[in-house]
Amino acid sequence: MNRIYEMNNLSKRKAKDIDLKEIFLVIKRRLWLILILTIITTGASAYYSYLNNAPLYQSSSRIIIEANPENRNTLQVIIKDSIVLDKVVKELGLSQSVESLAGRITVASVDNSQVVSISVTDTDPNRAADIANTTAKIYKQEIPTIMDFNDVRLLSDAKVNPLPINQSQNKLILIGFIAGLVIGIGLVFLLDSLDDSLRSEREVEEMLGLPVLGRVPKMHKRNLKKKNITQIELEVGGETIGYK
């Protein structure tokens, strides 16, 4: 019972005596573990981001369709029709299908005006601008034949946008880096709390309630063989005593 009581008191004293220096020493003792976990989580985040979050770029060209709202809606639908996009694919030499291309084109009226925006999303910023401009050009050429409508004018060409519109990949990598640090530090403190070994003279004194008069330094068998040491040194009260 006395042993248990002493252990409980020791635990309470240790909890009270925890300071920044002890926290630093705990982290320093297993810093390698934190670094390994951080590298793993950061690398995994970067790999996942590379595979699943390819950057997407968007460019828009604008045309003017001089028609009433009802007719303009019909004219806008034709922009994404295969009659127009099939010629876009052939002119630019695209490897994708017309259906796939149509899924990456957005057509919308700007503020309910006669100005219509043709927006293209692609993994290549230059190709996105080329597709938007080519679509607007071919549409202007073909719409008189399709609908007998000639009041379409090109307003502005699409410009290359070098900035991706989707979430930055660096954000996911940063999350992985922070998660690795948090998990690593948490694991280090967990392992330290489970380690009941005595690592300092102060802990021995608290455990036994007696002052420590001496200690035996660490000795490595390999070093003893190399140096052919026949004397063991014992420190007592700050003085070194040789023993053969």
Score class of each variant (00 low, 15 high):
1 M>D: 10
5 Y>L: 09
9 N>C: 14
10 L>I: 05
11 S>H: 04
12 K>D: 11
12 K>A: 13
13 R>K: 14
15 A>E: 14
16 K>S: 09
19 D>G: 13
20 L>P: 03
26 V>Y: 07
28 K>M: 14
32 W>V: 04
37 L>D: 11
39 I>T: 10
52 N>V: 13
56 L>T: 02
57 Y>F: 03
61 S>G: 02
61 S>I: 06
72 R>P: 07
73 N>I: 02
73 N>T: 12
77 V>D: 10
79 I>Y: 01
86 D>T: 08
88 V>E: 02
89 V>H: 02
91 E>V: 09
92 L>N: 05
102 A>H: 07
103 G>D: 14
105 I>M: 01
111 D>I: 00
116 V>I: 05
118 I>H: 04
118 I>M: 13
120 V>N: 06
122 D>T: 06
124 D>C: 02
127 R>G: 04
130 D>E: 15
130 D>N: 14
131 I>K: 06
132 A>L: 00
133 N>S: 06
135 T>G: 11
136 A>L: 02
137 K>C: 00
137 K>N: 04
143 I>E: 05
143 I>N: 07
145 T>H: 15
147 M>C: 01
153 R>W: 14
154 L>Q: 01
155 L>V: 09
161 N>K: 06
164 P>N: 05
164 P>F: 00
166 N>C: 05
170 N>E: 11
173 I>G: 03
184 G>K: 00
184 G>C: 02
185 I>R: 01
194 L>R: 12
198 L>V: 11
199 R>M: 13
200 S>R: 07
201 E>M: 07
203 E>L: 12
216 V>L: 09
221 K>L: 05
223 N>A: 13
226 K>S: 06
232 I>D: 07
236 V>N: 00
237 G>F: 08
238 G>I: 09
241 I>V: 09
241 I>H: 12
